[in-house]
Design a binder for these strands. Structure first.
Lengths: 162, 162
DNA sequence: ATTGAAATTGTGTGGAC
DNA sequence: GTCCACACAATTTCAAT
């Protein structure tokens, strides 16, 4: 299943229709039993397991995980926070990233090239919490030049094929 | 496990330490066996299963899924595309969102309140593909006023607690 | 809610095509 | 690469606490 080479020298996986269908089924439910997957794909359970393991081992599947709904846990408000680092503090960007990743409420962090240096995707209880988050974690940080916060009205995941 | 009410009238789940630990373990590996989870939590398998089912049924876990590494599949370049909709075309925003979500390469879509109306997170093969994506799907769309594309150097998921 | 025990179901290996 | 068969392991139900 691995037979190419990508730009950074790493392996590039070549998927066939079975692999793609398996990824699709696992995206919808990563906890489905191997037997059930095999049955829907019309292949033997052992074959399905071999495919699944190959997808994991080759790194196509980087992890099996869950999506937690922040709303159900009382985090009613999501926001994107655009952050610019001070020109004199660019060397602190890697540190900044790792610090922010572990803060409660942070769901994703993008390290960008362009006008803004970072985008933080956060989920918090209310607007007071997002204000507090920015004050405590960003404005207070001497490496941060400016921030701009936008409310997230809706967030969805792509359904495009692999 | 469900005993609150949130702002939009929906139920708010109240988690205990066991629930939180379970979510953490499942985030790291949603395919771990129930037995293994139960053992690490120090509870009976049947208890662990009841907790897991409760988290799913209450909507705390919205789905069990996989993370697919776009790089391994030859999509070496990720970008955020910031989109503004024309003032006269605001009524088309919902349509626009559902159209974009299914395009190949689209991983996430944020519907924002603020300067930009949408942020698209895309993963494509190379810079030529991102250019093509913008031309075909955005510039060509009469509802779109402007776009701005930023390269994603790094993308990580928050590790903050629940 | 949590448990242990029991019946059902799934997993993963080895050998053959 | 795919399959079947088999030994082992995990899941899930249920009565009891």
């Amino acid at each position: 299943m691995l037979n190419g080479t990508n730009a950074s020298g790493g392996p590039t996986a070549q998927l066939d229709d079975l692999d793609r269908k398996l990824l699709e089924l696992l995206s919808k439910n990563s906890r489905r039993t191997n037997n059930s997957l095999a049955e829907e794909l019309g292949i033997a359970a052992s074959t399905c397991l071999a495919r699944l393991n190959a997808l994991r081992d080759s790194g196509v599947i980087s992890r099996f995980t869950i999506e937690v709904d922040p709303q159900v846990l009382g985090r009613e408000l999501e926001a994107l926070i655009f952050v610019r680092i001070r020109p004199g503090a660019r060397h602190l960007m890697a540190n900044f990233a790792t610090q922010m990743r572990d803060k409660p409420g942070v769901r994703q962090l993008f390290f960008l090239g362009g006008a803004d240096d970072f985008v933080l995707h956060v989920a918090v209880r209310n607007s007071s919490d997002v204000r507090q988050f920015v004050l405590d974690n960003l404005s207070a940080n001497p490496a941060v030049a400016t921030t701009q916060t936008s409310l997230v009205f809706e967030h969805s995941h792509g359904t495009g094929e692999f």
